[in-house]
Design a binder for these strands. Structure first.
Length: 580
RNA sequence: GCGCCCGUAGCUCAGCUGGAUAGAGCACCAGACUUCGAAUCUGGGUGUCGGGAGUUCGAAUCUCUCCGGGCGUGCCA
């Protein structure tokens, strides 16, 4: 239920009628419809609905915008609910709607409840959202949180518009870093048994979490791993460590209210020869060759040209061709990444989304190139980058060094501020904007803290509804006469609530979950205004002692607000408490 | 050097993907609690949208160029 789309269709019908273009092909109709907009104007004096159709489509029919507008106006006036139609500026058509129209929307919301906001515009489309995908070499830290939340909430939003969503985590459990991990664990294991404090060599994982891991390893295997062939031990430690760390990661995600649908293993792709097959497939397409990369523009001192196996990424928009097999015969990580994306494409039969940290921005082009090559068409992969998060405490930035133990884990933050605050705050900034996460602010009980502000609005509504029940009002019943809701603030709330499906839709189309957060804050703000107006004007109080019908109208409006706030917080997996 | 992102009010940020007079919050000042929760609300003013050029009915938004900041940049992992 998106009234703007409904009106768009009606307005377009009229356009076709007055310009005698009824015989357009479906394709034409689609492209014409893409061109103009029907929206709630920013400026209230521009009416309830505004369209630029005359400005955009007048040329096509050989008219001036104003001429077309005049032609359309008389036809628009015949439609229901349209009370004031005016032509403004260079040829905008602004339309006002009867109050009753907005009141009906409230009743629709109450009927649909949590289904309000859902749409079917992408019904039965498949989509795979890959996010987090942190290497299983340590616990999750703040760097991962933002992507985790954005990926999870985006998935929820996509579900609301009809997508079949798979939330996926790619485990980099093969390659050199895992060897290093195992060797690092071995050092800790040795340390534990020999009680000699270990030196952690350069390049190894120094984190103290490995001490705990080594203890678990000892609990299971005793000191037996010291006495057998070290290669064998390391192989066993590898498996053990990955499982241990991955379980830890899963636990952390669970604490953040995130559950993945699928975990994919890189190791498996190497073992079942998917990587080889992928390279063969690209080779068949003539996209693989043996060659030498050009010398890099900087730091070229120790550059040596070497022959290696390359993928023709340049042909698909990348800056260079990219190495698939190194000169020493080993596969690059890029090779298994390509295989992984091929695997996802085959499984998904739809589009792919990757949520990456901004530090991976250099890989966007090559990955997109590879997916375009495999899929034989563009646009199957969309990569959303999220910028870094600055932690702030006592007005000072918390600097994390990569040295041992000196990073803040996700777990620690959850324990300190709670999952709700983390999730909400991560969505209060556009994903490509750097975000400050202020420990003090996010737990503050004030307007400064959007999490609190929105939850508080919900709690206040619940408190009124409880009171209503105590006073003997039937809060379950809808379908009351809402004509009492005729104040500007009432109508503003109706309009904002009606806008909800559109918010979901644009968030889904542009993959921008932050829009939902801003919307919820705005909605809460107008609600708080209405509440306070009741202090000043008796007729704006929710309970009208002499007039039950008016009271019920108010209660219905509040219930509608509650429906939308709950849906929004539900999308975020943030709780909506009855009282605070 | 190259690539990506960012630059909007004193500060933190939106701006419906090209729309009309560019909007919020914070901070600052002044007000509102015997009432449905004052953890809130109401007023009060702020802009060379980093600079310049271009595209058109119309640009914060698209293109080019320059300036400033962040991140990333070899067969890494």
């Amino acid at each position: 239920m998106n009234i703007y789309n409904d009106f768009k269709n009606q307005i377009f019908e009229i356009f076709l009628k007055v310009t005698k273009n009824n015989n357009k092909s479906l394709d034409d109709i689609h492209t014409l419809k893409e061109k103009f907009t029907v929206e709630l104007p920013r400026e209230e004096s521009h009416g309830d609905i505004s369209t630029n159709i005359c400005l955009v489509l007048s040329k096509i029919v050989g008219l001036k915008p104003i001429e077309l507008a005049i032609l359309m106006k008389s036809n628009l006036e015949k439609l229901d609910c349209f009370v004031g139609i005016s032509i403004e500026g260079p040829g905008f058509i602004n339309i006002n709607l009867e109050n009753s129209f907005w009141h009906e929307q409230i009743l629709k919301i109450l009927k649909l409840k949590s289904k309000f906001g859902r749409s079917e515009i992408f019904l039965n489309n498949n989509i795979n959202v890959e996010f987090v995908s942190a290497n299983p070499t340590g616990p999750l830290h703040v760097g991962h949180v933002r992507g985790a939340v954005i990926g999870d909430v985006l998935s929820n939003i996509l579900k609301m518009v009809g997508y079949n969503v798979t939330k996926e985590y790619y485990i980099n459990d093969a390659g050199n870093q895992i060897d290093v991990l195992a060797a690092s664990v071995f050092i800790r294991y040795e340390e534990l048994i020999t009680k000699n404090k270990a030196e952690i060599p350069e390049g190894y994982y120094p984190g103290e979490y490995l001490i705990q891991l080594a203890k678990s390893l000892y609990d299971v295997h005793g000191d037996s791993l010291l006495n057998v062939d070290k290669l064998k031990s390391l192989e066993l430690i590898k498996k053990f460590s990955i499982e241990y760390l991955l379980n830890q990661i899963k636990d952390d995600l669970k604490k953040l209210n995130i559950e993945m649908d699928k975990y994919s293993s890189e190791k498996k792709l190497v073992e079942d020869l998917s990587v080889e097959k992928t390279i063969q497939e690209l080779d068949k397409k003539g996209l693989i060759y043996i060659g030498v990369l050009p010398s890099p523009k900087s730091n070229a001192e120790d550059w040596e040209p070497k022959e290696q196996t390359l993928f023709k990424a340049k042909k698909f928009g990348d800056d260079e061709d990219r190495t698939i097999i190194k000169s020493d015969g080993a596969l690059t990580y890029f090779a298994s990444d390509v295989a992984y994306h091929r695997d996802k494409l085959i499984r998904t039969k739809g589009k792919l989304i990757n949520i990456w940290g901004a530090d991976h921005s250099g890989y966007v082009k090559r990955m997109t190139a590879a997916v375009n090559a495999i899929a034989d068409k563009d646009g199957q992969l969309e990569i959303k980058l999220c910028q870094m998060v600055n932690l702030i405490k006592n007005n000072k930035p918390l600097k994390m060094s990569k040295r041992a133990g000196n990073f803040i884990t996700l777990n620690e933050i959850i324990d300190e501020v709670g999952a709700d605050a983390i999730r909400f705050i991560m969505l209060t900034r556009k994903n490509d904007q750097v975000l400050d996460f202020d420990f003090d602010k996010v737990t503050e009980k004030s307007k400064d803290n959007p999490v609190f502000y929105v939850k508080y609005a919900h709690a206040r509504i619940c408190s009124v509804l409880n009171k209503a029940e105590q006073l003997g009002y039937d809060t379950e019943k809808n379908n009351y006469d809402l004509s009492y809701l005729n104040n500007d603030v009432h109508l503003k709330l109706c309009k904002i609530l009606t806008y909800w499906p559109k918010v979901i839709e644009t968030s889904a189309i542009h993959k921008e979950p932050h829009r939902v957060a801003f919307y919820l804050i705005e909605l809460s703000s107008v609600f708080h205004s209405l509440w306070s107006l009741g202090r000043e004007y008796d007729e704006l109080r929710f309970f009208q002692k002499e007039n039950d019908a008016s009271t019920y109208a108010n209660l219905n409006l509040l219930k509608a607000i509650k429906v939308v706030i709950c849906s929004g917080l539900d999308l975020f997996s943030v709780s909506a408490p009855q009282e605070m």
